[in-house]
Amino acid sequence: MTANALRLPPEQAAHLLGHYRAGVAAKRRRLVLGMVVLAIAVVLAGIGGEVDIPKFLANSHRLPAYVWNLAPPLSWANLGNDIAEWFWNFDGWLLLLGDTLLIAYLGTLLGVGGAFVLCFAASANLERRPWIRFVARRLLEFCRTVPELVFALLFVMAFGLGALPGFLALAIHTMGALGKLFAEVVENIDMKPVEGTIAAGAGRLVSIRFAVLPQVLSNFASYALLRFEINVRSAAVMGFVGAGGIGSDLMVAIRKFYYTDVSAMLIMIIATVMVIDLLTEQLRHRLIGLGDRT
């Protein structure tokens, strides 16, 4: 039947069909092999990660119970007072959240400064000496690969508890992450204005100021704002290692099972993060629009 529909000589049809079947079989074999490798990896990782399914199942009722406990006792008749009770430390937490935002801001600002200084040395079109480029790139790579919490831990030992180690750790990580992105932006610029300024006798700094900066500034600002969003989230957990902000209160509340405090603080953090996201998105869109207009 199939052979009739194909209207091919039987031997040619068989030949083609054989090829098709071999192709499908090879694909199947690859899929099965991949699945076997995945299964082995899962088992190994399960052993390494001390996964204990029976124990998990035996305790799994605790997660819904935990989430249930997070909900505060609210009653319709007494809603205002109940909410006031739930957010009993609203002013204090708001102040801590403000500190968290300031840590994120200062960390971003310093990091942007560092990235701005280093990005020109790391981009191939503005830095002809390969060894300087190499050093700048490896430095940026190191700064962004070491997790910021590790820097925070180290800085807490060096500077003592408080916001200072927190924003320094954020600044170093931001410098590494943004330096790479900034260098990529710089590498994509139009080189004609640079040649123009050099032809007119400008030095390195002047040509960066008048030929490079106008091309890259809106992109730099957009990336910096994006990083600020990320840093707000990171700053919220800096307190876990004693590096300032709302994190330390949150950790204490979680560790001591102050359920309603945990949910109140989480709601405040999530709301703040959402508001910051919205604001920076607006700003970034305006910036990019502005960049197009000029």
């Binding site: 403000g98 500190d99 300031l102 840590i103 801001y105 200062l106 408080g162 916001a163 200072l164 924003f167 300032g244």
Partner: peptide, 8 residues
């Protein structure tokens, strides 16, 4: 403000 508030 940040430097003052965070007691740097």
């Amino acid at each position: 403000l940040a430097v003052w508030r965070l007691d740097v």
